[in-house]
Design a protein around this nucleic acid. Sequence first.
DNA 1: TGGTTGAAAACTGTTGACAGTTTACAGCTG
DNA 2: CAGCTGTAAACTGTCAACAGTTTTCAACCA
Lengths: 259, 259
Amino acid sequence: MARPQSALEIVRTRSLTSLVQQEIERMILSGQIKAGERLNEQGLATKLGVSRGPVREATRGLERAGLVTAVVNHGVYVRKVSREEAFELYDLRSLLTGFAARCLAERSTPTQRRHLAQLVNRMDRAARAGNSTTYYTLNLEFHDALMSHAGNSRAKQIYESLVKETHLYRQRSLVAPANMRESNDEHRAIVSSISAGDAEAARRAGEAHVRGGRRRFAATAIPVADPIVVKQNSSSRSSRTSKGGTDEPKGASEHRRRP
Amino acid sequence: MARPQSALEIVRTRSLTSLVQQEIERMILSGQIKAGERLNEQGLATKLGVSRGPVREATRGLERAGLVTAVVNHGVYVRKVSREEAFELYDLRSLLTGFAARCLAERSTPTQRRHLAQLVNRMDRAARAGNSTTYYTLNLEFHDALMSHAGNSRAKQIYESLVKETHLYRQRSLVAPANMRESNDEHRAIVSSISAGDAEAARRAGEAHVRGGRRRFAATAIPVADPIVVKQNSSSRSSRTSKGGTDEPKGASEHRRRP
DNA sequence: TGGTTGAAAACTGTTGACAGTTTACAGCTG
DNA sequence: CAGCTGTAAACTGTCAACAGTTTTCAACCA
């Protein structure tokens, strides 16, 4: 019984569920599925050439990761990150970056320090050339290296999770040239503090850098959708008229019953 | 279609999956399922009176939460937290506690400060009475309040996740009387720094407190299982003789096949 | 005409079943 | 008797189907 070759080439080292999870995550982060939108299980299943089982399992993982929220009998919705939540995420990333910088100032190998310094130099060239895509990639790599070298795997994992969630607020905003230089100056400050072995300065520089990112983010980012929602009364069939606009996860803990 | 309005009707505010997830999590954290053990899907399903589907979905969530690790075609295993990982977890909890204390020093309501102070006083009484169970509960409540009042929901969520993971290393160790007093002195230092509005002192006090916990932990905790593992060669049927001891998740990306 | 109502369609929650893989165990061979 | 080998049981991965709920939509009534 030759099964039709699915869109995902089947590799047997990972389960279908994990592949589906990865694919849905990509769809969400690339903006292919917008925030607040509902995930259609059957639709995703047929689109990916699998059954609904793996899709459901994948969404459970994504729910725990904070990318979607599930409402009983309604489905799972791509999480909407509010402006305030985005700020919270920045605060935490700031904290973790400072932590990583401190760890590296206290204990790091010459190779690691050289790696970081090299990335800063390459970002410098990209900034001078006004190449924001290259800068964007290198910036990601720099922060990844920072967390990886710090030697706390859980910290790195949490940091990556926070970055993903931040992307839910808005699509990636490519950095303006002036911001690139400012940002990379902060990178350099982090690296030099690390190289100097000054843990406290490294921590402050790391925290300040992401706070700077938060400031730059706050100055430009505008919420896409109106965050105002009308309070829902619990009269029967009240939700019938929810027509226009992006569909929203209804009150989860609400228990509607007929009179 | 008027369904019978039975008051005894099962409240459907949560899906079976979330209930199963909660139950399995409880089993793991209470030590009912030990670290390194495999979760039998069918067994759990029949034990909880559900099908395998919800169990599988639940385990995906737990995997993302870091409580279990899934190996293809082998099953999911309760994660074993090594001594080093436990230290990492403590470092992160330390960081987050310091963060919360700093936030509260910068912005907190009198009610919140009173709440924290009250908890410290109650812990003081418990410590004097040598009542370590009460102290344990109050201590949890104190840290919970600290994270809740700090106003960063994600931080609180991460903190709780870290605490759960810490429990995977070893069952809760009730605190010795001397440790209780020392611990609560640190609590008091946090609260007074918060009340004084000294953000930097509060941060240091918060960090120092969990570092103290880590030190007390390191002094007493002994790894239950030998962390030494022999490197597995990939000859055919090599894993046949893995008899004694707790079963272990075999090499995940390994692909064994017969000659 | 505006709002209500009832049935059909669509979707989610859950289950049981089937296929493929891994593990256990008894038998065989040297 | 030790080690290897083949078969059966157990288990995981995936799927299709059924049951219950929500949403849609056209007919109906004031």
